[in-house]
Structures are given as structure tokens and as C-alpha cells.
Amino acid sequence: MEIKIETKSLEEIAQVIEVQGEIDVYTSPRVKEIITELIEKGNYNLIINLEGVRYIDSTGLGILIGALKRVREKDGCINLVCNNPQIKKIFNITGLVKIFGIFKSEEEAFSSLKSA
């Protein structure tokens, strides 16, 4: 299982976490580590770009929910970028569409975050 994670800052307002590969029981700890590092450095507005993700399991979903809980405590927000119908189906089944903003592009996710 391979995963590639890159981060970048958007106008010093949000941090983008771009994930490529599979988020499963092996790779989830790495995703959690990166998100936790950003939150501990005071970044509470995150955009997680899942465009390069072809597989996510319940461990990965748990990481996303845990991260959202942490940033909300600081009045932050996590928006997701996802167009993959397979991944979106998993978000639908588990009701995550109701708690995450899910956008078609980083630009849309960022605009929503700025106007929140």
C-alpha cells in the first residue's frame, strides 16, 4: 500500500493536505500524523484533497472525523475535495456528507472556507 501526502498553505488562511493513494489500516496512521502536526501548529482550517485517493476504509473515515472534531473545538473547519464516485458513495453511506463540506475543487473548497 502506497500513499503520498503533500501540504501547502493557501493565503495563510488554510492548509491543503493533498493525499494520493490508498487510505487504509496501514496508511491511516501517516495521514493522522500529518493532520495532527498541522493542528498542533495552530492550523484549524484544512482542505483535504482526496482527488488522488482511490480507496478509503473505515479507519480512514475515523481519522477524518477525529480531525474535524479537533478543529471544530477551535472554531476551525475541514473541507474535502472529492469527485471520485466510489469515495463519495462511502461518504454517503456513512453519513459523512452531512458533517463535511465536500467540493469539486480546491478553489471551491477554499472559497467556502473563506466565506464561512
Binding site: 473505515s58 462511502i90 453519513g95
Partner: peptide
């Protein structure tokens, strides 16, 4: 899992079996 509960009450786990049932 209670899929209607607000984020604060959401558990981070318990979605796996729910996924299996639905698929």
C-alpha cells in the same frame, strides 16, 4: 452508528460494519 447525530456525538469508529451491510 447514529448517522444523524451531530459531530460532537459522532464516534470515530463503527462505520466498517455499516459499510459492509450497505454494500
Amino acid at each position: 452508528p447514529d448517522l444523524e447525530s451531530p459531530l460532537e456525538e459522532r464516534k470515530t469508529g463503527g462505520h466498517g460494519i455499516h459499510l459492509v451491510k450497505n454494500l
